[in-house]
Structure formats: structure tokens, C-alpha cells
Amino acid sequence: MSASVLYDVPGPRAKRRVMLFSVLALVGLLAGLYVVYRQLDKQNQFDADKWSPLFDPTDDSFELVWARIGEGMANTLMAAALAVVFSLVIGTLLAVTRVTSAPWYRWIVVGFIELLRGIPVVIAIFFVARVLPEFGVSLEPMWYLVIGLTLYNSVVIAEIVRAGINSLPKGQREAAESLGLTRGQVLRLVLLPQAFRAMLPALISQLVVILKDTSLGFIISYEETVRVAGQIVQNLSNPIQTYLLIAVIFIVVNYALSRFAIYVERRLSQGKKAAKTDEGAAVVHADDLAGAGATNVG
């Protein structure tokens, strides 16, 4: 932590002080954990029958429980994958048309994007699930979820793509245009390939958001991981253990994805330095897009 803005590299006295506070903090932490442990123990949360269906292969319910969790995870991944693909296609189209088209069309797209960004994704999903059947469009719950997620995430991805295109040096477009390429060709051959590279980290981060948001499928009875967990809890009445397991699964997968995003970002900026291009590096940082992906929170 010597690189911190806030303090110098500690000297002997500061080191002693840090040591003292570390010990105090550790004691506090352990005390807190002990209180939690004692409370859990007092409420019999460590009883074998609450854990063994989830973790003991010899338990009668073990296979059934994991088969259900597996189904739930498959459904989660399925919905997430479809939503990602659709959002990517629609988002890119939105961004590209926004960059190139006539002003009146651009305003429509901007309005659409602003509107959809202001709506909670739960409401988008619920809207799709309740309104489409009124117009005679009855689909599997999964499609409602996918459409809802796509509505919301395509505008987020449109913003990411736009930021990616805007982050490119102006000379790229100018050079391409002066070669006589049409607007479509400039985008397709010159701008988009570079923009996608630059925004890969942000896109991977958005993947985490989509994966998390599939858990909203429970409101429209889609059998994804979290809903399956709810059913398990109803049968085994072990909410703490089951939700803990589900949380760990999500955290491991998403943490791996986040690390991967950081790794890709680092790789890309290294390539930039090696190539000695200008320093306005065209990598769209995941964090810069907190605005676009305000959802990072959701």
C-alpha cells in the first residue's frame, strides 16, 4: 500500500501503531464472527439435517437437490446467454444508427435509451410478462425474462458501444473517409472492430450484471437458480444454508468473470503501450461506465 495517496511508507513508530490496530481489528473481527457463530449454534443452524442434503453425497435428498440446482443453473445460463446475444446485437444497432443517422432519428434513439435506462429492470420484465399475453402473445416464461433483460441491457450496451466508438482517435474515421469508404464501411471495417476491442472489459462486466439479473426470473415463475433454491428451502426449511450455497455459486462465477474483465483490460492496455500509440488509450474502463451501466449495481 505504499502507493496510497493518504500516507507515507510507515516508519518504525507507525509500523508499531499499525500492528496495534491490526491486532485490535482482528480481535474485533473474531469476536464478531464468534457472536454470529454462537447465535447460529443456539438456533440449531449447524444441525446435520440442515446441511447434509446439500453437502453430504450419502444423504437421500442429495442427488435430487443437486439435480434441481443443476437444472436451475442451466436455465439461468440459458436465459443469460440469450439475453447477452440479443442485447449485443440490438445494442450495437442502436449505437451505430445513433452515430450515423439523421438528427430526428438520433433523437428518437436517445429518447428510447433514456427512457429505458430510467425503468427498473424488474419492471421491464414484469411489463413484458403481463402485457404481451394481453395482446395474444403467450410465450414460455423464459422468453419474457429474456425480452425484459434485452430491453434493458441493449440500451446499456448501446451506450458502451457508443463510448467505445467515441474513444477512438478521430484520425481513424477521417483516414477511412478520405480513402473513399462509405459510412457503413467506415463503421464496419474500421471503427467497430477497434471499438469492440476497447470495450471488451466493459462488456464482460455487463455480463456479470445480466447473470445477476436473471435471478429476477423468480417474479415470473421462471425456474432459474434462485427460484429453485426457494423450492428447496420450502421442502427442507434451511434458508440460511441453501441461500448461502447459491450465493457462493454466484459469487464464484461472477468473481471469476470480473477478474477476467480486469485481465483483458490489462492485456489491452499493455498492447497499447507496446505499440506506442497515443496515450489517450482507447480502452473503455468498466468503472468509467458506471453511468452507462448504472446497473453495475443491479
Binding site: 447465535q39 447460529l40 443456539k42 438456533q43 443452524q45 456479470v208 445477476k212 439479473d213 435471478s215 429476477l216 423468480f218 434462485v226 433454491a229 426457494g230 428451502v233 434458508p239 440460511i240 441461500y243 448461502l244 447459491i246 450465493a247 454466484f250 459469487i251 462465477v253 461472477n254 468473481y255 470480473s258 443491479g298
Partner: peptide, 19 residues
Amino acid sequence: NCPLTVVLFFCAFGLPEVG
């Protein structure tokens, strides 16, 4: 990295379990 839904479920159904 955890969906808000899971956190909510954990709070709504887990906390009563521990009193």
C-alpha cells in the same frame, strides 16, 4: 457479485431463522 435477490432472500428468510 451476488444478486440482490439472493441477498434479499437471505435477509427475509435467513434472519428470522437465527431469531
